[in-house]
């Protein structure tokens, strides 16, 4: 579909700008990935999401 950015592309670009936060979140899960429970890394995820939302709006 030329002339139109697909939502996934927009999403991917925004996430690409938050690689640092993403890595921190990934490490948090990796530290105990055999016993993952809900909101185990909520703090790290919220930082990642804030960064992503900011990057998404900037475009």
């Amino acid at each position: 579909m030329p002339g139109r950015t697909r939502p996934i592309d927009k999403f991917a670009t925004a996430v690409g700008q938050c690689s640092k936060e993403s890595a921190v979140y990934g490490k948090c899960i990796l530290a105990d990935y055999n016993n993952v429970h809900k909101d185990q890394c909520a703090v790290e995820f919220m930082k990642l999401k804030d960064c992503y939302l900011a990057a998404y709006k900037k475009r």
Binding site: F11, V15, S22, A23, Y25, G26, I29, L30, Y33, F45
Partner: peptide
């Protein structure tokens, strides 16, 4: 989208 966002980070780390 939350799950997708999280999956990207986990995929990369793991």
């Amino acid at each position: 989208r939350d799950a997708l966002l999280a999956a990207e980070g986990i995929y990369r780390a793991l």
